[in-house]
């Protein structure tokens, strides 16, 4: 199992808002373990899904050059349960940003129904950790492509936006050296 709690981005406006979808499936193990006998999608993983959506919104905003951590769940209110077969739409909207971090206002909708409201505070890892590589750029970019981020990423003016140059360069090197397999090769590479 992989720690992906969103399936795909459907909207991503740099520095403003990101919308992702998560389809709840009965095949997910945690659904069976959360309330045994009553399969529901754990609310904590809805928080995680919005944290992934919002965290990537914050990370993209700074060109993925700073490490972003979820620092605080300011508010988490759940109005509806999520069960297998539901498609959740997570919307993360940037409320504010400072040199120390950012605040995201998040919602989860089940069709047109407001399922949850979750506000999150993200922090940038302090300067003493800057320069410590937290991930391999080519791997990270491959994951973002799986999420379809760059299919929908655009500037606030509506222009398509490419991944950061350092990630594209790392991806090119990885492809040339055969580290990245064909199955995760970028469609336009």
């Amino acid at each position: 199992m992989r720690w992906y709690h969103i399936d795909r981005f459907v909207e991503f406006v740099s520095g403003q808002r990101a919308v992702s979808i998560k389809t709840v499936s009965l095949t997910e193990d945690h659904i069976h373990d959360y309330w045994p006998g009553y399969p529901i999608f754990p609310s904590t993983l809805i928080v995680e899904g919005l944290a992934q959506t919002g965290g990537l919104l914050v990370g993209e905003m700074v060109g993925f050059e700073r490490c972003v951590i979820l620092a605080k769940v300011s508010r988490a209110t759940f109005h509806e349960l999520a069960v297998p077969g539901d498609r959740l739409t997570y919307t993360a909207t940037l409320e504010t940003q400072t040199p120390e971090g950012a605040i995201i206002k998040g919602t989860s909708h089940k069709d047109d129904i407001l399922q949850a409201e979750i506000n999150l505070v993200f922090g940038f890892i302090p300067e003493r950790m800057e320069g410590v590589q937290q991930f391999y750029p080519a791997d990270f970019l491959a994951t973002m492509r799986k999420f379809g981020m760059f299919d929908v990423l655009q500037t606030p003016e509506g222009e398509p936006k490419l991944p950061p140059a350092f990630m594209l360069e790392a991806e090119k090197e990885a492809l040339e050296s055969g580290i990245l397999g064909d199955e995760i090769a970028p469609p336009s590479a």
Binding site: K72, S74, E95, T96, T98, E100, G101, V121, G123
Partner: peptide, 13 residues
Amino acid sequence: ESIDFLDIMHQLE
């Protein structure tokens, strides 16, 4: 905690 100040600041604003 230190990160709370970001939250408090935003709410005050």
